[in-house]
Every structure is written in structure tokens, then in C-alpha cells.
């Protein structure tokens, strides 16, 4: 986090980060408060949201390859935002997040309808998600094609970036992420029961339908908010739960909080890396997570048994 504040077009020595944060008279106060701090906070929020959403999805679909990016939920939010920009001229701002939520909700429900059944193997679910992703992606391309101004703005947004962050964005996203997080954490215990199958869960006194609804709402809030703020990011939601599971085991009561901690570290780390590598400009964080996360994903599916149909 400190690194994220320090690194940028105007580097700030690490030792001066704290003074810059607290002392209004320090030279870097403006840079830090106007740009770096919101960006870091947004990274924290988005990372937490995606990590927890990923873990919750993997638990809900009982599928190790579930990821909000791979399954098209982020793309659903993106498509809705693109539509909003084209039809109603809704730009970055208050309206955007509602469209993002609607898009995310639609795709979440759709993917769940496909992936929640017993017949869906990880590979098949991933394939259904990828197909949806391709459809939504081609739709977003078409929208960008029709609207040159939209293209100029959206082409940066669709890569996934933390760059546009200001205090307003953070303030707008915060309530959605907070509610989503609470819902997901509250559902952790009953989700553990659900992992044993519907019948066992019912025998243990849980109510499967209610839990599912709660988790779907949580995922929608988390993914929709994260996507509205920084564009569709892949692999964060997929990999973080896998890394954390090595530490905590499959118990969601531990898994979810740890994901909430580790995912922002990963996202901010990628963001910092993008800024360091891309000097004097920057590489968008979406590119960094895709390029870093992709090979890890390939390793996961080729070297382990998770992917067996």
C-alpha cells in the first residue's frame, strides 16, 4: 500500500510517504491526496471485492475454475455500461454503477443457471462462461464502433485500470462493496454446509435457496461495483482463492477473510508493477493481471487434477 502511494510518475521516497499523507504543508501532499491515495483505496476495494466474489463463486458453483472475469460477469457489467454510454450518454459517474450492477446481476443469474446444476463440470462451466464472454465482448466492440467518443473513453476502461480514480469514485463504490462483503461473510458458514450438497445442507439445518440468493446478491454487488470503478479484470477472483486455500484449507470462514486481505495486495502489487514497468506512462493493471495470472491459470489446469471433467 505504501508502495502504491510512493510509486508513480513523480516518485516519492518511501520515508516521506507518511509525512506526505499527514502533513498538509508537505510538497507531495497534493499529489498523494488527489491521485495516489484514492487510487490505492480503490485498488483495495476492487481487490477485496473481486477476491471475495471469486471465492464465493467457487463455493457456490462447487467449481474450482469459477471466476467473475472468466465467467463473463465482469463482461456483463461492461456491456451494460457500454450500452448506457451509447444510448443514454451516461458517462463515468453515479449512473454507471447501477447499469454495471444490472449487467452483472443478469450474467450471474445466467451463469448460475448453467453452472449450478450437477451435470456441469468445471470445463463445461468455463466454456459456457467463455462463450458468454466472447458474445459480450463482441457486443462491446460493436458499441464502441458505433460511437467514436465512446471508443476513446471505453477503450481505456475495457482493459481494466485504476488510473481514473478520484475520491468520488471511491465514495461511490464503497457502500456497494461494504454491503456485498458483509453478505458474503455472513454466508460463509451456511455455504460450508452447502458444500456437502443440498440434501446434507438441509439435514444440517441450512436453507439452500436462501443462501444461494444471498450469495448471488453479494457476488453481483461486488463484481458490479468493482467493474464499474475499474473495468473488467480477469484472474484476480480465480487465483486468489486458490493461493489462499493453500494457507487456510477449504473452510470458508477463514478463506473469505483471507481472500479479502490477499486480493488487494495482489491487485495493488500488479498496479505498482504496471507503473514501474510502463514508465514514464503506465501499463493498465488489467493487462498486468492478465499476463501474470494467465500463466498461473494455465499451470493450474495442466498440472493439477482440478480440471478433470
Amino acid at each position: 500500500m505504501v508502495l502504491s502511494i510512493a510509486v508513480g510518475a513523480k516518485p516519492i521516497p518511501l520515508a516521506q510517504v507518511w509525512p506526505a499523507l499527514t502533513d498538509p504543508t508537505a510538497a507531495e501532499y497534493a499529489v498523494v491526496h488527489e491521485m495516489r491515495l484514492p487510487r490505492t483505496l480503490l485498488g483495495l476495494l476492487a481487490g477485496t471485492a473481486l477476491g471475495v466474489a471469486g471465492a464465493a463463486m467457487q463455493a457456490l458453483t462447487r467449481n474450482p475454475l469459477a471466476d467473475p472475469g472468466l465467467l463473463g460477469i465482469n463482461a456483463g457489467a461492461a456491456a451494460a455500461i457500454a450500452t448506457a454510454a451509447l444510448l443514454f450518454g451516461v458517462g463515468a459517474g453515479a449512473g454507471q454503477i447501477w447499469f454495471a450492477l444490472a449487467g452483472a446481476a443478469a450474467v450471474t443469474v445466467g451463469v448460475y443457471a448453467v453452472g449450478g446444476g450437477r451435470t456441469a463440470t468445471p470445463a463445461r462451466l468455463a466454456l459456457a462462461g467463455a462463450a458468454l464472454n466472447a458474445a459480450l465482448y463482441s457486443y462491446v466492440s460493436a458499441v464502441m464502433l458505433l460511437d467514436a467518443a465512446g471508443l476513446e473513453r471505453l477503450r481505456f476502461w475495457t482493459v481494466g485500470s485504476l488510473a481514473g480514480a478520484d475520491e468520488d469514485t471511491v465514495r461511490r463504490v464503497l457502500p456497494f462493496v461494504a454491503v456485498g462483503l458483509l453478505a458474503a461473510l455472513a454466508a460463509a458458514r451456511p455455504l460450508n454446509a452447502l458444500a456437502l450438497g443440498d440434501d446434507s445442507a438441509r439435514a444440517l439445518g441450512a436453507r439452500p435457496a436462501l443462501i444461494r440468493a444471498a450469495v448471488i446478491v453479494a457476488i453481483t454487488l461486488l463484481c458490479g461495483a468493482a467493474t464499474a470503478a475499474c473495468g473488467p479484470l480477469v484472474f484476480v477472483g480465480l487465483l486468489v482463492p486458490h493461493l489462499v486455500r493453500v494457507l487456510t484449507g477449504p473452510d470458508l470462514r477463514w478463506l473469505l477473510p483471507y481472500c479479502a486481505l490477499l486480493a488487494p495486495v495482489l491487485l495493488l502489487g500488479s498496479d505498482v508493477l504496471g507503473r514501474v514497468l510502463g514508465r514514464p506512462g503506465e501499463l493498465q493493471v488489467g493487462l498486468v493481471t492478465a499476463v501474470l495470472g494467465g500463466p498461473l491459470f494455465l499451470w493450474l489446469v495442466t498440472r493439477t487434477r482440478t480440471a478433470r471433467p
Binding site: 482493459v159 488489467g286 494467465g294
Partner: peptide, 11 residues
């Protein structure tokens, strides 16, 4: 691979 390349293409 497709997810990686989508990121690269966007960039």
C-alpha cells in the same frame, strides 16, 4: 490463452 490475449489486445 484467450483471457490473456484479450487483456493484451485491450492494451
Amino acid at each position: 490463452v484467450s483471457a490473456i490475449l484479450t487483456g493484451v489486445n485491450g492494451y
